[in-house]
């Protein structure tokens, strides 16, 4: 089978993804548990690590990458992210403005 050698390669890719995800969760959990950093810095680490972990999951578990084939999958994700950004930031902006003016 010509696919046989690839099996190990693909298995390794899943394991790399798993280990990366594990590290990316363990660090923020550890920071929150120990309180090693100031709250604002902790929140920054949580945000950055979560975003990286999302990319790791997409890359290693869902096999979405920047290759030339089937760009429409990637386009779809990017478009969804754009809309999510518009909707969520807009929503938070509006509601924050409202609550600020209600004080």
């Amino acid at each position: 089978m010509k696919d046989e050698p690839n099996y190990r390669q693909e298995l390794r890719s899943y394991l790399i993804g798993f280990v990366l995800a594990l590290v990316l969760t363990a660090v923020p959990f550890g920071l929150v548990a120990t309180g090693a950093l100031a709250p604002l810095q902790t929140l920054g680490v949580i945000t950055v690590f979560a975003l990286i972990q999302v990319v790791v999951h997409f890359r290693f578990f869902l096999h979405i990458d920047l290759s030339q084939q089937k760009r429409e999958d990637l386009h779809l994700i990017l478009f969804t992210v754009l809309l999510l950004l518009i909707m969520c930031t807009g929503m938070i902006w509006i509601m924050a403005s409202l609550s600020e003016r209600m004080h």
Partner: peptide, 13 residues
């Protein structure tokens, strides 16, 4: 990932 980051971790920071 969103739930543990936004709900649990951010909530307990």
């Amino acid at each position: 990932i969103g739930i543990f980051s936004i709900v649990y971790l951010a909530g307990l920071t």
